[in-house]
Nucleic acid binder design. Structure first.
Length: 749
DNA sequence: CAGACAAGGCTTTTT
DNA sequence: GCCTTGTCTG
C-alpha cells in the first residue's frame, strides 16, 4: 500500500511527503506536482497511523480544490477521510466561528456579509452619522476598512493613525461599523480570519483545543496568504510545529488583497530549523514554454529563485500575434481554436482564453458565439450577486438571523408593500433609542411614535408573515422554505408580468436558485442540509467553485482565476502596455513585479501550445473618455521573451474584416471617437447553444425529476451556471432546469 | 409613497 | 456600454 503511495513520486516529492515531524517549506514551481505532494502526504500520514483524519487541517485556495483533494486522499488510502478539516481559510474559519460564536457574543447562526452588504451597512451608518455619502463614497470606505482589517489594524489603531479630516471620519465609521456588525450578528469576509485570532488571543484554552486537535497543519498556495492567515497558521501549529506550507513565490498574485509575499520569503527565518524542498521538475509544459516563462520571471528581484525543467519535448514555439483591435483579436482566438482542433484533434475543453480584466470577455464572447464555439465564462458578474437572487436570499437570511438588518432593510419594502422611507426611518430611530434591533422594532410597531395606522397595519402583516415562516422553518427543509418564501412574497410577480427579456432571465435565475437549494438539500445528510449552511456555502463560493471542467466548452477567465489550472492550449489576450501590465502598476516596481508574476502564471498554465495576443487599438469603458478607442503598444512582457522561443506575426496592418477594420486610423498616440451610429451590440447573454449533446442529455430524451415527475427535454443550453435544460413535464408544465442541480434521471420514453 | 427619467460614475484582479 | 443614484411628478 505504502509503496503505491510513494512509488509515483520523484525524489524531491518523496522527501516532501516523508518529512512530517517538523516545519517544512515546499517550494513548488508551476506544474511540479504540488497537489500530488499534498495529497500523498496526507495519505501517508493517515496510512502510517500518525494521525486520524480529524487531526489533520489542510488549507486550499478554493473549495473545489478541497473537494478534489479529499477525494484523492480517500482513493489513495481506500477509505473515507471523514472528519478531516479541509477547505479555504474562510470556510475553515467560519466553521470555527460557528462553534465558538458565543465566546464572541455572537449566535452561531450569524450571517456572512459580502462587499455589497458591507457597503450598504456603511451607507446606513453614514446616514445615521450625517456623513455625506457623496464626498465619502461608501464603497471607498468599505475598501479602506477591509484593507485595514487585512493588515490587522483595529478601529482604535486606525484612529490613532488618522492624520487628516477624512481619515478621522473613516475612523469614526469604522468604529461604528464594527459595532453594527455585532448588532447584526454578522461577520464580514475579513472578520472570518481576524475574529478567530482575537479569540485565540483572549482565550488560551480555545487555542489549545485546536492546537491539540490539529496535529498536522498543511497549507497550499502559501505565497498568497495575508497577515491574518499567517498568524492563524502560526498559532495553530505553534505547540507541535508540524507545519507544511507549499507555495511558489513566483506565483504570488494577491498583494492587492493584502497577501504578503514576505510570508513565504521569510519562512526560513521564522523556522530556522525548517526543511526546504524544491520541486523543480515540471510535468505540465513543454521545455520551450518553460524556458520562456523562466526568462520572463527572472526579471523580478523579489524571489527565492529556482529553475524549472521538463522531460517533455521542447515543443513548438510560442505564437505572438498582433491584431488591429479587440475585435480582430477575438477573431484570432476563433482561428486559433479552429486550427488547433483540426490539427491536433483537440476538443473545446482543452482551451483556455485568459485576460487581465473581466471586461475583456465581451469582444471574445461575441466572436465565439458567432463562430458557434461553446464557451464558459468563469467569474464576472456572479450568479449569487444578481439582484433577484440577492433579494430572495435576503428573505432567507432574515429568517435565519433576524438581527441581520442589512437584509431586512433590503426586503422590508420589496416588493413594495407601502412601508416607505419615512416609516423606515421612524423604525430605525426607535430601534436605536431603545437599543433593540430593527426586527424587534417592527414587532412592536404600535409603540413607535409617528407611525400611522395604515403603516402600522402593513408592518404588522409583514412581521406576522415572517414570524409564521420562522416557525415553519423548523419543520420543512431549505428547499421547501425557499419555495414558500418566493411564492408567499410574490418575488416572481414583478418579472412574470412583463415581457422584457431581462425579466425572463430573472425568473429563470430564481428557478435556478431553487434548483441549487434543492441540489444542496439532496446531497447532504439531513442535519447538514440546513438553510444556514446553504447560505454560508453560497457566501464563500469562489468563482472556480462553479466551474465544471467536464463541459465541452472553451473556458474564458481572468488570469487570477486560472491559478492552479492547466490546459493543452492557452491563449492570453490583451498583451498591451497599460492593460497587461495595467497602467497603474507601471510607476510602482512592486506592482509591476506582481503583474509579471501574473503573466508567469498565465504562461505556465499551458501544456503544449501558448498563444500571446495583443491589439494595436482597444476600446475602453473606463474613466472620462469612456467608449473611446485607445492606441497601445505591445506589452513589455512580450519583449522580455527571448526571440528563440517565439514566432511573431503582426496582422494589424490590414483590415481583418472584423467590422471595425474601416475605422482603423494610424494616428499614433491619440485616440478617436467611434462613429455615433455604431450601435454597441449588447451580448444577449453569456450562454452559448450546445449542439453536441455531450452533457449526457439530448433533445428528445426522457427524464424523471423528483418533484415534477416525468418529462421530455425540449432544449439544451450551456450557461455560466450549468447545463440548462428546457423540459416539459406531465401536466404540460414547462421548466428550465440546471442539469447539475436538478438531479434528473434519464429513462427510456 | 412609488415609478419614471436623467445624470454621473465606472472596471484590476477576489475570499 | 452598463449600473447606480438622485430628482421629479402623479
Amino acid at each position: 500500500m505504502t509503496s503505491k503511495l510513494l512509488s509515483e513520486l520523484n525524489e524531491a516529492q518523496l522527501n516532501a511527503v516523508k518529512y512530517t515531524e517538523g516545519p517544512l517549506l515546499v517550494l513548488a514551481g508551476a506544474g511540479s506536482g504540488k497537489t500530488r505532494v499534498l495529497t500523498n502526504k496526507i495519505g501517508y500520514i493517515l496510512e502510517q497511523n500518525m494521525a486520524r483524519p480529524y487531526e489533520i487541517l489542510a488549507v486550499t485556495f478554493t473549495n473545489k480544490a478541497a473537494r478534489e483533494m479529499k477525494n484523492r486522499v480517500e482513493n489513495l488510502i481506500g477509505m473515507p477521510a471523514d472528519g478531516m478539516w479541509i477547505g479555504t481559510f474562510h470556510s475553515i474559519c467560519a466553521r470555527i466561528l460557528r462553534i465558538e460564536a458565543e465566546h464572541l457574543g455572537y449566535d452561531s447562526n450569524f450571517t456572512i456579509y459580502d462587499v455589497d452588504d458591507q457597503t450598504r451597512l456603511i451607507q446606513q451608518l453614514q446616514n445615521g452619522l450625517q456623513i455625506d455619502t457623496g464626498k465619502l463614497k461608501p464603497r471607498q470606505i468599505q475598501y479602506m476598512i477591509s484593507d485595514s482589517k487585512n493588515k490587522m489594524i483595529t478601529p482604535k489603531k486606525f484612529e490613532d493613525l488618522a492624520v487628516d479630516f477624512k481619515q478621522r471620519k473613516v475612523a469614526k465609521i469604522y468604529a461604528e461599523y464594527e459595532k453594527a456588525l455585532k448588532r447584526n450578528n454578522a461577520f464580514d469576509f475579513d472578520d472570518l480570519l481576524i475574529k478567530p485570532l482575537d479569540l485565540f488571543t483572549k482565550k488560551k484554552e480555545i487555542l489549545e483545543k485546536y492546537q491539540n486537535r490539529f496535529r498536522y497543519v498543511l497549507v497550499d498556495e502559501y505565497q498568497d496568504t495575508n497577515k491574518a492567515q499567517y498568524y492563524l497558521i502560526r498559532q495553530l501549529s505553534k505547540s507541535h510545529r508540524r507545519i507544511c506550507v507549499v507555495g511558489d513565490e513566483d506565483q504570488s498574485i494577491y498583494r492587492w488583497r493584502g497577501a504578503d509575499i514576505e510570508n513565504i520569503l521569510s519562512f526560513e527565518k521564522d523556522y530556522p530549523d525548517c526543511e526546504v524542498v524544491r520541486l523543480e521538475q515540471n510535468y505540465r509544459s513543454t521545455q520551450n514554454i518553460l524556458d520562456a516563462a523562466n526568462a520572463v520571471v527572472a526579471n523580478n528581484e523579489k524571489r527565492l529563485g529556482k529553475n524549472l525543467w521538463s522531460q517533455k519535448e521542447s515543443g513548438s514555439k510560442i505564437s505572438v500575434v498582433g491584431s488591429v483591435d479587440e475585435s480582430a483579436e477575438a477573431a484570432q482566438v476563433v482561428e486559433v481554436i479552429n486550427q488547433e482542433m483540426y490539427d491536433n484533434k483537440l476538443s473545446y475543453k482543452d482551451f483556455a482564453v485568459l485576460y487581465r480584466t473581466n471586461a475583456q470577455s465581451r469582444a471574445l464572447e461575441e466572436k465565439l458565439r458567432r463562430a458557434q464555439i461553446p464557451y464558459h465564462i468563469v467569474g464576472g458578474t456572479k450568479f449569487f450577486d444578481r439582484k433577484e437572487v440577492k433579494d430572495a436570499l435576503a428573505y432567507l437570511r432574515v429568517l435565519i438571523n433576524p438581527k441581520d438588518t442589512v437584509a431586512l432593510r433590503r426586503i422590508i419594502n420589496y416588493p413594495t408593500r407601502g412601508i416607505g422611507n419615512v416609516t423606515q426611518q421612524k423604525l430605525e430611530g426607535f430601534a436605536f433609542q431603545n437599543n433593540i434591533t430593527y426586527y424587534q422594532a417592527m414587532l412592536v410597531a404600535e409603540e413607535v411614535p409617528g407611525v400611522g395606522d395604515a403603516a402600522r397595519k402593513k408592518i404588522d402583516a409583514f412581521a406576522a408573515s415572517l414570524e409564521t415562516l420562522k416557525i415553519k422553518a423548523d419543520d420543512v427543509n431549505a428547499f421547501e422554505l425557499a419555495t414558500e418564501v418566493i411564492n408567499q412574497f410574490g418575488l416572481k410577480r414583478e418579472y412574470s408580468l412583463s415581457n422584457l427579456p431581462d425579466d425572463e432571465a430573472r425568473l429563470e435565475n430564481l428557478n435556478e436558485l431553487l434548483n441549487s437549494i434543492a441540489y444542496f438539500v439532496e446531497n447532504r445528510d439531513a442535519e447538514d442540509a440546513t438553510l444556514a449552511k446553504y447560505l454560508e456555502e453560497v457566501a464563500l463560493l469562489t468563482d472556480i467553485d462553479r466551474w465544471d471542467d467536464n463541459y465541452s466548452a472553451v473556458t474564458l477567465m481572468t488570469l487570477h482565476s486560472a491559478k492552479g489550472l492547466e490546459f493543452p492550449v492557452v491563449v492570453v489576450c490583451g498583451l498591451e502596455d497599460g492593460l497587461f501590465p495595467l497602467s497603474r502598476s507601471l510607476d510602482n516596481p512592486e506592482d509591476l513585479e506582481e503583474e509579471r508574476r501574473l503573466f508567469y502564471v498565465g504562461m505556465t498554465r499551458a501544456e503544449d501550445s501558448l498563444y500571446l495576443l495583443w491589439a494595436r487599438q482597444r476600446r475602453r469603458f473606463t474613466g472620462k473618455e469612456s467608449g473611446m478607442s485607445f492606441r497601445s503598444n505591445v506589452s513589455r512582457f512580450l519583449l522580455e521573451i527571448p526571440l528563440q522561443y517565439k514566432n511573431e506575426e503582426d496582422n494589424s496592418s490590414y483590415s481583418s474584416g472584423s467590422g471595425y477594420g474601416g475605422s482603423y486610423n494610424s494616428n499614433y498616440g491619440g485616440y478617436q471617437r467611434k462613429s455615433r451610429q455604431q450601435k454597441f451590440k449588447r451580448p444577449e447573454s453569456s450562454y452559448v447553444p450546445d449542439f453536441s449533446g455531450d452533457s449526457g442529455y439530448n433533445i428528445g430524451d426522457w427524464v424523471i425529476h423528483e418533484q415534477f415527475g416525468k418529462g421530455q427535454i425540449l432544449g439544451i443550453e450551456k450557461s455560466s451556471t450549468g447545463t440548462k435544460l428546457t423540459v416539459i413535464f406531465a401536466g404540460k408544465a414547462l421548466k428550465k432546469l440546471i442539469a447539475e442541480y436538478a438531479n434528473l434521471q434519464l429513462v427510456n420514453s
